[in-house]
């Protein structure tokens, strides 16, 4: 039973990481990455590493997510500015 859950969790980890890497839209990729961070916290709990699970939940999913979303905001404004300056690129 435990092994089954581990395999399922490992698959979910790989799937969310794949989506975070493969999605071309950075906004969806960041959201997928936050999901990946939360799944990582679960994986740490399964690996009997509660210390890391605590840190990962607060840092990996929380702080990194906030930082990346803020980076996304900057990117959007920059993109708009560029489009205004150069028109759309060929």
């Amino acid at each position: 039973m435990g092994i089954l859950f581990d395999l399922l969790l490992a698959f979910a980890l790989l799937w969310s990481a794949w989506r975070a890497i493969a999605l071309t839209d950075p906004a969806s990729a960041v959201v997928q990455f936050i999901v990946f961070g939360l799944l990582m916290a679960l994986a740490w709990a399964r690996l009997r590493a509660p210390d890391i699970a605590l840190a990962e939940a607060a840092i990996g999913a929380g702080l990194t997510g906030a930082l990346l979303l803020d980076g996304l905001g900057t990117l959007r404004t920059g993109q708009r500015q560029r489009d205004e300056q150069h028109g759309s690129r060929p």
Binding site: L14, W18, A20, I21, V30, A43, R46, G71
Partner: peptide
């Protein structure tokens, strides 16, 4: 071992993800 194996695959996926996209935010994610 299950999670160590997944970790190795994640690492390789990350390597490809750092090399392939041109967008910097996606590189940072990978």
């Amino acid at each position: 071992m299950i999670f160590a194996g997944s970790g190795a695959i994640l690492f390789a996926m990350g390597v490809a993800g750092v090399l392939l996209p041109t967008h910097l935010l996606r590189k940072i994610l990978a």
